[in-house]
Amino acid sequence: MTGRRTSPSLASAEDPIVFVVDDDSSVRESLSSLFRSVGLRVEAFGSAHEFLQCKLPNVPSCLILDIRLPRLSGLDFQAELAKADIQIPVIFMTGHGDIPMTVRAMKAGAVDFLTKPFRDQDMLDAVTAAIERDRNSRDEAKVLSNLHELFATLTPRERQVMALVTTGLMNKQIAAEIGLAEITVKIHRGHIMRKMGAKSLPDLVRMAELLEIGPPSGQPQT
């Protein structure tokens, strides 16, 4: 059983993609048709192996997985993905879902668990939600990497100051803490706000949280 590609390429388009992995070609094709009918791009595979062979594009996507697959079961495949650090929302399908299976799938981070035959709307809702979730996490990841880039422009001293500022210390306290003049702390602070693009102190605090800049060590983090 080989996967049949139902859209011409995985190319650069920004549209979200739905990946389908099911060993049954009828099911694969019917899902392809359904997703295409609502304008979604679809990529279908007959096995987990084939899916892993392809290079995933950097667009919002989700994976629809049959829980019973030849050789590697859907649940094991989910674990494999996690191990390979492939972050993709997974929607499980099963012929006869049972509770332990569902629990295991959901605990492992499945977005949804649909029993065949499913209502088309349920499937589309699940896919929409999964893509939204992927889009969000992709956005978050983007924000974070931006922050990391900005953070990288700070001098070690500025990073040190930022860590202390975001813990809620006043300039005077910071000056005392690191042995600088209060005015110098103030200047650092101004540089930090500008370099990080923070509009306010709470904004900077949120950035620090995202960057996981911890105050206890007092050491600048990279």
Partner: peptide, 19 residues
């Protein structure tokens, strides 16, 4: 499972057809 697979495909295809 053998019955359910084509059945699922039928239902999905029918939904797709309507769309």
């Amino acid at each position: 499972h053998e019955v359910n697979q084509p059945l699922a495909a039928v239902v999905t295809n029918a939904a797709a057809c309507r769309r």
